[in-house]
């Protein structure tokens, strides 16, 4: 009996364990795997991110220089960010806000001239 009472009394004087969410937001850790962004001007459309992605949410077209990501298929594992040879993919520390409809990020880069020999299609 009364085993819980000291705990309850202590809870009156300690700080709250919860926060009032929309008004108080938790500080993100700098390692957090949040929103995925692509710096399209650095991207060379090699397609390694699309090949490595376990959920296959990224589509890259080298000819038309487009990069697409189906946001609600992405699992935010961070594999593409680690394998990107151009280091143009990043993950922010914060997460995306909820939305009402499914979105796809569509990015159009400039079509590079043929003289750059790198960026072979990955297996």
């Amino acid at each position: 009996m009364f085993k819980m009472t000291p705990n309850i009394l202590k809870n009156f004087i300690t700080e709250k364990a919860t926060r009032l969410y929309p008004y108080e937001v938790k500080e993100p850790y700098d390692i957090n795997r949040g929103e995925l962004v692509n710096e399209i001007e650095k991207c060379n459309f090699c397609g390694i991110c699309a090949a490595k992605c376990p959920s296959q949410c990224i589509t890259v077209n080298k000819k038309t220089a487009t990069w697409e990501c189906a946001l609600f298929v992405c699992v935010y594992c961070g594999v593409c960010v680690e394998t990107c040879p151009q280091k143009c993919l990043h993950q922010k520390q914060t997460y995306r806000k909820p939305v009402r409809e499914k979105e796809i990020i569509f990015m159009q880069g400039e079509v590079k001239a043929k003289d750059t020999p790198d960026g072979s299609e990955s297996s």
């Binding site: 390692i31 957090n32 795997r33 594992c77």
Partner: peptide, 27 residues
Amino acid sequence: LFMQFWRIREKILNIQEATTGNRIIVS
């Protein structure tokens, strides 16, 4: 008691988030 245990669990989840980048699917 349920809430007390889950409050402790939150501390572990914070450790996981701070060291791996995600709360549960640490990957």
